[in-house]
Design a protein around this nucleic acid. Structure first.
Lengths: 117, 117
DNA sequence: CGACTCGTACGATAGTCATCGTAGTACGTC
DNA sequence: GACGTACTACGATGACTATCGTACGAGTCG
């Protein structure tokens, strides 16, 4: 196939207006999920779930991606058997300007600080 | 008394280096606590617990203030029978530049958006 | 079709959490 | 000392959650 063809099974996402700050903060307040979001932000989007090497089982990974999707942080689309994940940076930046960048920057600072002592 | 005199009972606070991003985000991802933080930021600091008119009981209010304190978001000091609360803006801004302001701004935007339709 | 990969659904479990009510402590004032 | 105020401690409870394992569905490739 030339065009990867988005699968027919599509996943429920909140609309831009339905995204809530508390839900976003809650989604980001978990180690695993913050790690996922940081990788997504660093690697550009469109990463499949299996490209994340998380220290948890597949079921747990599925759970975390669902939390992120339902909070409006990521957008997920099936492409064949793979489920691609993209950060909803446009929506988040529109609703909460500077928030995502501040969180990502804070996370980077903290991990640098903890690593370098 | 001229000097309000800080009480001898003092409360455990995390040091600046002990503050963790996840804990801060978790602390801010609750309706009541975000509301408390917004009021603290708006009114300047040094507000007593009882000045907050939250739709929960006193025990629950105590609980939320403790979560905020243990996450490093607020600093609490007894002054007589009152427990004064101040935002640790200096520490947070140093560790996570722009984060607190982004969250506060996001919260203000969201409440405006929800109010005005 | 059959085998394989990717991800889901479901059930279980152990842990955390927001909330409450009651009883109690610390402090200031009379 | 007695009273009132401000907040806490403790126990309970119901809800949610992070985690797992197993069994299943959807898609791709031989």
């Amino acid at each position: 196939m030339t065009a990867p063809a988005v699968s027919s099974r599509d996943l429920p996402h909140p609309g831009r207006e339905e995204i809530r700050l508390e839900a976003v903060l809650h989604a980001l307040s978990d180690r695993m999920r913050l790690r996922i979001v940081r990788e997504l932000a660093a690697d550009g989007d469109e990463l499949s779930c299996s490209q994340f090497d998380l220290p948890v089982t597949k079921s747990t990974t599925t759970h975390h991606f669902r939390v992120l999707r339902e909070a409006g942080v990521v957008r997920q689309v099936y492409r064949g058997t793979a489920k691609m994940n993209g950060l909803r940076k446009d929506d988040l930046d529109d609703l909460f300007p500077g928030l995502l960048d501040a969180v990502l920057d804070s996370a980077a600072r903290e991990s640098r600080r903890l690593r370098d002592g």
